[in-house]
């Protein structure tokens, strides 16, 4: 191998990223960055070497990471990876390499641009997950199960579903990511990943249609909206803070932010 640096191209998976680390050492490639084959190819790129994802190699690298980095550091890598931000994979790549080369975790070196980038990305992902716990709203369906649409910026549903399965252990529910077109169904025992085919209107709009709804669902939505408006203190109106803490991109799926329905409330 000559001295010029090159870029490793992998298939975009986390295992692929770890395989790239493996190949860098085993084939003595002087690589400082990686490139997902799903990303746009930059205009100037001198040398690209393709890497075939290999689970066994990835596991060996991950075991090495586990030996050097703390749990927090490992979580930093996996969670920032989920952000799928351009360049974050190269940051993760370099963090692993630096930790391996120095035999010491660099996860706390916040003056290092890669660590800082990963840290910020991980925080955004964590925040997205937390906002899912905050702003997800279930609607009760006629068959007694519950349905919630979500539309997170990052693919955080798999990180959040455990929380709901624990919390609502005795109720069947479906949480569906309407932009990524998959969801999790909890049947009262276990959660299963589902992708629903066909053109079900509530999977597109996020709202159960009248005939699919539990007969009391409307009433409880109205009660919640009533409560939401009654609890605010007019003298302290602060729309800026409201929008800051509850970003507007969640509003279209929030029960309380829908204007009250015109129909009369069943008695």
């Amino acid at each position: 191998m000559d001295d010029s640096t090159c870029t490793l191209r992998y298939d975009g998976s986390f295992d692929g990223l770890l395989t790239a680390v493996f190949e860098r050492y085993s084939r003595r490639i002087n690589a400082e960055s990686v490139l997902s084959d799903k990303a746009d190819i930059p205009m100037f790129l001198d040398r690209v070497i393709d890497v075939d994802t290999d689970e066994a190699k990835a596991r060996r690298v991950w075991n090495g990471v586990k030996r050097i980095m703390t749990n927090t550091g490992q979580k930093l890598l996996t969670q920032s990876y989920l952000s799928a931000e351009p360049g974050i994979d190269s940051s993760i790549f370099r963090i692993i390499i630096k930790s391996i080369d120095t035999e010491r975790t660099v996860e706390n070196d916040f003056a290092d641009p890669d660590v800082l980038a990963a840290w910020h990305a991980a925080r955004r992902v964590g925040q997205e997950r937390h906002q899912m716990l905050q702003f997800l709203r279930f609607q009760k369906a006629a068959d007694g199960s519950y349905f919630a649409p979500v539309e997170p910026r990052y693919d955080v549903l798999p990180m959040a579903v455990e929380h709901f399965a624990n919390r609502f252990a005795d109720q069947r529910f479906l949480i569906f990511d309407i932009s990524r077109k998959y969801g999790f169904y909890y049947d009262g025992n276990k959660t299963i990943r589902v992708t629903l085919e066909g053109d079900l209107p509530h999977l597109r709009s996020g709202r159960l249609t009248e005939e699919l709804m539990d007969e009391q669902e409307r009433l409880f939505q109205d009660l919640w909206r009533t409560y939401f408006h009654a609890i605010a203190i007019a003298e302290r109106a602060n729309p800026r803070k409201q929008r800051h803490d509850m970003p507007a991109r969640y509003w279209h799926l929030l029960t309380e932010m829908q204007s009250p329905p015109l129909h009369t409330i069943p008695t």
Binding site: L133, Q134, N166, D170, I231, P239, R240, D245
Partner: peptide
């Protein structure tokens, strides 16, 4: 338990909504 509902979480708690006064 599988036949009870609810848990409480660590950290700062979960705020489910924000009223017009920002609280």
């Amino acid at each position: 338990s599988k036949d009870s509902v609810g848990n409480t979480v660590s950290g700062v708690g979960i705020c489910h909504s924000f009223a017009a006064d920002g609280r």
